[in-house]
Design a protein around this nucleic acid. Sequence first.
DNA 1: AGGCAGCCGATATTCCTGCTATCCATGCGG
DNA 2: CCGCATGGATAGCAGGAATATCGGCTGCCT
Lengths: 236, 236
Amino acid sequence: MRMAELSARTGVPIPTIKFYLREGLLPPGERTSPNQAQYGEEHARRLKLIRALVDVGGLSILASRDVLGHLDSVGVGALETLGKVQYSLTRRREREPDDDEAWRTAGEQVQQLLDRHGWNVRPDNPARTGLAEVIATLLRLGQHDVLDLLDRYADSAHELAAAEVDAVWRRTSLEDRAEGVVMFAVLADALIAALRRLAQEDLVVGTAVEGGAGPGERAPASTADGHGGSAAAQQA
Amino acid sequence: MRMAELSARTGVPIPTIKFYLREGLLPPGERTSPNQAQYGEEHARRLKLIRALVDVGGLSILASRDVLGHLDSVGVGALETLGKVQYSLTRRREREPDDDEAWRTAGEQVQQLLDRHGWNVRPDNPARTGLAEVIATLLRLGQHDVLDLLDRYADSAHELAAAEVDAVWRRTSLEDRAEGVVMFAVLADALIAALRRLAQEDLVVGTAVEGGAGPGERAPASTADGHGGSAAAQQA
DNA sequence: AGGCAGCCGATATTCCTGCTATCCATGCGG
DNA sequence: CCGCATGGATAGCAGGAATATCGGCTGCCT
């Protein structure tokens, strides 16, 4: 197909497609003449992926290019891809953190947490810094009760990550796996954030309705222990 | 204290403080004369909070102003504050979603999920739309196995939210509670994201090291033999 | 009392990002 | 064979977040 059709099919305006081509997010089409090119299904897919990363994942154009670049160099294994994607994802911190008391404490807490949970993480994983930064901020603001939940957060995160790794591993082709890594790294963040907000409201509404005396032992709403597994997999 | 001291104490440059004042993020100091003002401890705290929201939480100046505005109008109860904060948090979607098949399916799935888990959420909660948007995107990209984990994500989210609500409720003063709401709404997102990335790497390293045959039942933790193992996980 | 520094407010300028718009030469295609 | 879409390059624009500059004033120190 030509550019006009690509645009029509994906809903992305032509000037924007040109822009993405220029910026290297979208690989160039196959030239059939000096001013004609053919685009395939993979271009449409890539375009949709770009919009997903930018619109839903909130990535910058630059970060998206990096992430997508890792997708193209598959064959190096999921670990490699995951590492690179994660590195691309952490938005560059403009100001390197000031080396104050809170920062040092935060660094220690991160290490202790990793030890406590027995996590094996490379020392250069940028998520370490990210985590330390959040902890340092909470320390500076004196929000110690948030930090008391760290281990709980960690347990849940580990559970979820296990399910994610499992799901990715179940994929067969290398490309699919790499794409899965990106999905779980980028879009799951948005997913969890939204779910947490919904759950928060449910709980607050529940406690407020019960008289506002405190977070009472509300009947746990059927606990959803029987959630129909793939009932969500509506496979449209 | 005067502006210079406020700047020195918080590390925020004076022009930036002026900017925040202009934009209404920071309440003006107490005037002692037409060109002199006094700032108190609460201004320093507010400044640190602004930097936390902007730097760590990734909020825009505008969104931060809204969130902080809700902090000032305390006394209306945690539910009210939570709702307003959540509304301010969801970044305005520039393009309202195109009403295609995926979007409609996504809307249904959100409702089904809420029913399945028995969550009581107001219909105007913007997180509903946010969640639907992510689901629609995943549908359009054909990532159904991600959606299969929705219920698992929801369960974890609910657990965490319960702990969070509990923690907030434990706070005594109204101001502290409102601040807690903001903390858990904004910073916990970053916290969880970082922890998930760390857990992901741990699990991938673990499976890769064990021969790359699949996500095996790795001995839980205690692996912390140093990070040497991960370096070897270059698995071609 | 004199003077210098600091402060406040307002305006203007800069830098970055993510697109759009314009322009032009070219060659497809009816 | 001629118009119009295509592709490439350059320039422009809008919004966001600061940052710089300037004028007028006022403490405060001596």
